[in-house]
Amino acid sequence: MARVQEANPLEILRRRRIDATVMQVLLLVLALWWLFPLITVIRQSLQVGGFGNYAHVLSTTLNGVFLPRTFLNSFVVALLHAFFVLAAGSMAGYAFSRLRFRGRELAYYLVLVFLAVPATAVIVPVYFLTGKLGLFNSYLGVALPEAALTLPFAVLLLRNYADGIDGSFFEAASIDGAGHFRMFTSIFLPLSRPTLINLGTLCIMWSFQDFIFPSLIIKSPQLTTAAQAVQTIRSAFSPTPQQTAQFFAALVLLAVPAVVLIVIGLRWMTMGLTSGGAKE
């Protein structure tokens, strides 16, 4: 795995003043293009009614949905999702890396093959299962299938990480008479903390992004998540200029939790995705 080093080899290219200026200008122009949707949505949200639109959508329920509540809902689902993935993923990562058992490699690749399963392809069974388990309108009902879809990635990431841990840590513990559960809790978990943080941040982001499972499982407006609310609140606004502006204000607000997460956790997301990722 490539470690991110501080000194970037490309920085010497900055010595060429003209090229550096060209790049700076090009990047600024492209950044403007990338910000164009954001600029548009903010501009539209203020066009009729100004900042009052934000106050309005924050203080009323839209089709029964109260926006601040959607942030809380998204967050609870995200935490549950992260907990399941970290718990099941770290145990499996340890097993595939440190334990010897017959068919280990075959089992490992069988686990990884499910990296490709699309959420849309399992909506029919998930709908049925959720009904059987009585999990409609519950955070758990959303977090469980989300965790199932994230786990192949988690196992890949954590096994790769565990393979890279110096074996002498475990040997020393083994000589001292530590069993596997002891080694898992007092050596593997503390040593994997950075990777677990990366993975946890990714889980939270993926949960914030998920629309399919919330829309399938949560029908109650009180439990609607932020990504799901994009659709739920839409019909609460009629196509008048004022209400269209309010709809845009609501869209801006719905992005806030994700943006906060990006500002805080971008470093960990990048490390998680690039160090485990689709690479070996």
Binding site: N8, L10, E11, L13, R14, A20, M23, Q24, L26, L27, L30, A31, W34, L35, P37, L38, M205, F208, Q209, D210, F211, A226, A227, Q228, V230, Q231, L251, L254, A255, A258, V259, L261, I262, V263, L266, M269
Partner: peptide, 27 residues
């Protein structure tokens, strides 16, 4: 590549280019 040459404000630029991929796609 251009961001990696250490242009001014590269952290901000990096964030801007990643923003659409990291916020909810539905949004």
């Amino acid at each position: 590549m251009m961001i990696s040459t250490g242009v001014r404000g590269r952290k901000l630029l990096y964030g801007i280019f990643l923003l659409p991929s990291l916020i909810p796609l539905s949004l």
